[in-house]
């Protein structure tokens, strides 16, 4: 098997995640889809690392995880405060930028 298949899998997962972001209205699910996209990227990085025979790709994936952790903390905090004020976790409810 060619390890490029891992890249195709990563592309597929990324696309599914992106589509999910566009389709779902629940902010939590949207957020999960973003995590899915990040994971797909990580898979690609790890595969690249293996293909190039050095560990830099894994380092990048590691940093992605750290940043994702930070992002999740803040993002979930935002969702919680949004839910508190609006009693809803729908991203469509926060459409204040409309004219």
């Amino acid at each position: 098997m060619n390890p490029v298949n891992y890249l195709y899998l990563a592309a597929l997962l990324f696309t599914i995640g992106a589509t999910g972001v566009l389709i779902r209205r629940n902010a939590i699910v949207v957020f999960m889809c973003i995590e899915l996209m990040l994971n797909a990227c990580n898979l690609a990085f790890v595969t690249f690392s293996r293909m190039h025979g050095n560990l830099d790709g894994q380092i990048i994936a590691f940093f992605t995880m750290v940043v994702a952790a930070a992002e999740v903390v803040v993002g979930l905090a935002i969702i919680v405060s949004l839910f508190r004020s609006r009693h809803s976790a729908s991203v469509d409810d926060a459409s204040l930028m409309k004219l």
Partner: peptide
């Protein structure tokens, strides 16, 4: 410009 973040996305 309908204000929906998903639309912009």
């Amino acid at each position: 410009q309908n204000g929906y973040a998903r639309s912009y996305a």
